[in-house]
Amino acid sequence: MYKKIFGVVVIVVLAGIVLFNYIEQQNQTASDESNAYNDSGDSETQGGSISSVDEENMLKVGNTAPDFTLETLNGETLQLSELRGKKVILNFWATWCPPCREEMPAMEKFYNDHQEEVEIVAVNLTDSEKKEEDVHTYNEKYKYSYPIPLDRKSDARNAYQVVTVPTTYFIDSEGNIQQIKPGPMDYEFMEDTVNSFN
């Protein structure tokens, strides 16, 4: 009789330990996921953390947009300064970033509706990808038509001090930064922001 009671107690204790460990693991996973996309300190921002911030030397609204030259997914060369005369939505993204993937269909629609006066440039942070082929595979699947430069050596990312992805810079036709938007955008936000400057 005592052996049966002892056996039941042991089973209950072991089950309790397993349950406790499972709950702790789930809490840790949830905590990791809630922190995985935002390292900016802004509780309203969603995005993937890339690096820390140098607040003293950060780009600000009104600054001239740093120039860069990168190869695009289709093998062409894109130099940002050659887009002067058009408004530019300069977006930084990665295939592993859920908020980036979330906003890209709206970016495609906006590009199709406004490409005569607004250029969308979606810089892929290629050095953060598992392999460059992932970017090609992703775009083959979704067929986004706006230019996708490959930032293989973090040149553009460093120039723009990108901390989280997605991050988007709205640049006027004279090459000046008019808005900086961390986190995903929707169509209405892009339209309102672009219409708010020259």
Rank of each mutant, 00 (worst) to 15 (best):
D172C: 03
D32M: 12
A30F: 04
I171F: 07
S31A: 11
F6D: 03
S52M: 07
D32S: 11
V10F: 10
K141D: 13
V162Y: 05
N57M: 08
N35K: 15
C100F: 08
L78H: 07
V135W: 02
Y22E: 12
N195V: 02
D32E: 14
N124S: 15
Y111H: 12
A36R: 11
R152A: 14
V162K: 04
D186I: 10
E76P: 09
V163L: 07
G75V: 11
L73K: 07
A65D: 08
R152E: 14
L59K: 10
V121N: 08
N195T: 01
E116N: 12
E44D: 14
I180E: 05
E102Y: 12
E56S: 14
L73G: 13
T168E: 10
V8D: 02
I50K: 02
D32N: 14
T167L: 01
G41K: 00
P184C: 08
S128M: 15
D151E: 08
E44L: 13
N63I: 04
L78C: 09
E55R: 07
V118Y: 07
F6H: 01
T29P: 00
F6Q: 07
I23V: 15
E76L: 04
N91H: 04
V10A: 15
V13F: 09
G175L: 07
L90F: 03
F110L: 06
C97Y: 03
D42F: 11
V123H: 06
V18R: 04
S196M: 02
K3H: 12
P105D: 02
G175M: 05
A65P: 06
S81T: 10
A30I: 03
N158C: 00
I17V: 15
E174Y: 07
I120P: 09
T72P: 11
T69K: 11
Q161V: 00
N139Q: 06
G175H: 03
E188C: 01
I148L: 09
M1C: 08
E133R: 12
E55P: 01
P166I: 05
S145C: 00
